[in-house]
Design a protein around this nucleic acid. Structure first.
Lengths: 325, 325
DNA sequence: TTGTACGCGTTATCAT
DNA sequence: ATGATAACGCGTACAA
């Protein structure tokens, strides 16, 4: 900056002002400074800026997995929204692991983010302490609680599981099975579904866990297992994600089963491909776009007015009836 | 740090040392310092550290799209590898746009990353200048060139397109069509395929561009268009990604066409679901895992020994013959 | 093994 | 409208 200033015939401070508050600098010195910046190829040092101003314009975000399209698309919206307000997002994957999340929180906090996004409402005690100590806005997404660390935006997974149970029961199904990926929130939906459906139908639900991330292959294998090993025959299958449901659809067809005639299949998430499958997938729609932008807006609001009141955003969900159930 | 030091009865520097070079501090002062850190909840300020040491331990990465699983999984590997070496990755989406990439490069450079990853080998002139000026290791991925900015790791897209043309021709196909997403590298594969296939078969190839990102829906619509509007009937369809090919498979089945009997379908990328489709998808395998880790290793090598020699890593590709072609 | 002094490149405050 | 000066919180060099 000093070098740029020398070239423009002003002091270092004026260069700083030209960059941060151009309106406080006279038009022609501004131009000279801009020319000098152009000529020198000067790139401001945001580290120094953040150190001096105590604002990093960095927002850190912790998601379980980047390769899960659900989180990836959420983050894309969230990042775009924040970028348009001059913030950059520092992203990490926790791998659905609370301890790993805790370590990442410490690492991220050392970069002094202006705010932080966390996925889910379950965090280690140490994590909560660090966050509280950091004294920055925090938003927890994809779930809802009455006592967020700071703010939360998401929906109620127990309600969602129950709603699906009611929906399938009302379609006339008396038997049901579930196929769930190894994700705490999905498991919560599963048990809510299972409990409600059993209560309604009087029949036990066959619950299965893929033991890993959701994928088409995992869905195929899970249905195969359900049919071959546990004797599941007819009824409804509630999958914890559209990807699993997609696999179920493929496996069912490969076995000559008709969907929904022989077996009804329900997904979760309403991913873009859900409507393009044959049969089109009945699923639970989550407004991921809204999730991302509400989370971003919530943080931005706190950043501007630290005493903003609303802190719990329930975005709900919607059952989308298509052809598969 | 000074406060921690007071509590531990040492000076600020000793605290700094305890954190960065624990072996240079006597065991019991080390313990006292650690206790003090624990007691105060001290979190080191990486911004100040980076400013003083001129090493940010930050590596910035620019990818076209996060919601494209291909890039997402690549980045997951890349990030994990770097994290295990004490680096954090600052990630942004360029949206396949060179101008947007150029702006992001400037923003990222202001955070003084220790290295940078770029996708592709085509960048604006200004971008190249900034990067050269920053004087940090740069790796360009997903493509190969003789004159990278610094290093590159990927494969040759023209060779890939040609190889697919040869493969399909050798399978006995005389007619072919292509369905390509709006991606510069995919378009390069398309035209190499098209040229080679025409040369071999003497028949023109029906090239189509989805005009947007790859998706199952886009694949369905593209095949429908190909059949309904351009009169494509039998032959091979080369899709620029497995996702498009997946859509083609669905649309073909919905129209009662047999794959590969009536129509052969080929994808690109060998995504995890490719083997789980019916019929299993014939595709071109790219070792994304290797791509991510080689890119990370290349940067790490440069960071340790700035004069490391090798700078071009051709990881190749492999045609995976399954059932669809 | 520990401490002192200084500088990293900005922004904030106060003057002019 | 512009400048001088003092932080910001740490690492490095050098000294003890």
């Amino acid at each position: 900056m000093a070098a740029v200033g020398r070239l423009a015939g002003v002091s270092q401070v004026t260069v700083s002002r030209a960059l941060s508050h151009p309106e406080k600098v006279s038009p022609d010195t501004l131009q000279r400074i801009r020319d000098a910046i152009e000529a020198t190829g000067f790139v401001p040092n945001a580290l120094a800026g953040a150190l001096a101003s105590k604002r990093s314009h960095l927002i850190s975000a912790l998601v379980p997995s980047l390769t899960n399209i659900v989180y990836a698309s959420f983050i894309a919206t969230f990042s775009a929204q924040l970028r348009s307000h001059g913030y950059q997002v520092l992203l990490s994957e926790t791998g659905f692991d609370t301890t790993s999340e805790q370590d990442l929180i410490a690492t991220h906090l050392s970069r002094r983010p202006d705010a932080m996004l966390l996925t889910g409402i379950h965090h280690s005690q140490q994590a909560r302490r660090s966050l509280l100590g950091a004294d920055i806005p925090v938003v927890e997404v994809w779930d809802i609680t009455d006592s967020p660390i700071d703010m939360c935006v998401g929906f109620n997974h127990v309600d969602a599981g129950r709603a699906v149970a009611n929906f399938l029961y009302e379609q006339g199904h008396k038997n049901a099975a579930t196929i769930t990926a190894n994700d705490e929130r999905a498991l919560r939906r599963q048990s809510a579904f299972s409990e409600t459906f059993t209560q309604l139908s009087g029949n036990a639900v066959l619950n299965s866990n893929t033991g890993g991330p959701a994928s088409i292959g995992a869905g195929r294998r899970a249905l195969a297992h359900l049919i071959d090993d546990t004797g599941f025959q007819r009824g409804a299958v509630f999958c914890s994600s559209d990807l699993l449901a997609h696999g179920v659809l493929i496996e069912a067809r490969a076995r000559g089963l008709c969907v929904p005639g022989d077996m009804a299949v329900m997904g979760f998430g309403d991913q873009d491909f859900a409507r393009d499958l044959e049969p089109a997938l009945t699923t639970v729609a989550i407004d991921r776009l809204a999730l991302g932008s509400v989370a971003a807006e919530a943080l931005l609001a706190r950043l501007v007015r630290p005493d903003t009141k609303q802190s719990i955003f329930d975005l709900g969900f919607k059952i989308l009836r298509r052809a598969s159930a």
